[in-house]
């Protein structure tokens, strides 16, 4: 009898513990392009030696922000109906990390952009969108990889802040 009583208690607890859950709408996907729209100012530059990383050398990367007036560099991206439209760079006294003054831009995938291509007539500059984290918080990390004969040798990470 006692056994049935305990079974009844357990079943009753389990049944009363259940209640309908409200599954909230996950909402619209995070619009990366919308977050990229606007004016950005360079905050930090990190240079990495990919060979040194690959082979575990002691000196792999350095923060070169203070080595030149990089923080004067600005870039602006505009959208047209949610699609990439125009870009403008304003180097100020900074080295021209993007050697195009203006033009159009495009991405490889509007929902999950990875490759950003800046176009000025026949000249293009390709940058990687290094991460989406903090993009919505006004931080943009663009990455340039430099190659020689198809071999990746150098990487620059450019950290921008929305202004």
């Amino acid at each position: 009898m006692q056994k049935y009583f305990f079974l009844f208690i357990i079943l009753a607890t389990a049944l009363f513990a259940c209640k309908p859950e409200t599954i909230h709408d996950i909402g619209q996907p995070f619009d990366k392009l919308k977050s990229m729209e606007g004016n950005w100012q360079l905050q930090k530059v990190v240079q990495a030696d990919l060979n040194a990383i690959k082979y575990g050398f002691p000196y792999k990367e350095i923060d070169i922000t203070s080595k030149a007036p990089f923080t004067e560099f600005k870039v602006a991206f505009t959208l047209n109906n949610g699609s990439p439209a125009a870009f403008t760079t304003t180097p100020g006294g900074s080295p021209k990390i993007i050697n195009l003054p203006s033009g159009s831009w495009k991405v490889d995938n509007a929902q999950t952009p990875k490759l950003v291509t800046l176009i000025n007539n026949l000249d293009t500059v390709k940058l990687d969108l290094a991460t989406y984290s903090n993009l919505g918080n006004g931080q943009l990390q663009l990455r340039v990889t430099k190659r020689l004969d198809g071999k990746d040798l150098l990487r620059y990470d450019y950290y921008f802040k929305k202004i």
Binding site: Q47, N51, A52, Y55, K67, L154
Partner: peptide, 25 residues
């Protein structure tokens, strides 16, 4: 041959390969 092991030197250049628009340390 491009080095595969790090050789300490009094005169170090970072990064190991550089172009004309790269920061040379």
């Amino acid at each position: 041959f491009d080095p595969i092991v790090f050789i300490p030197s009094a005169y170090r250049v970072f990064p190991g390969k550089v172009g004309v628009s790269d920061m040379i340390n």
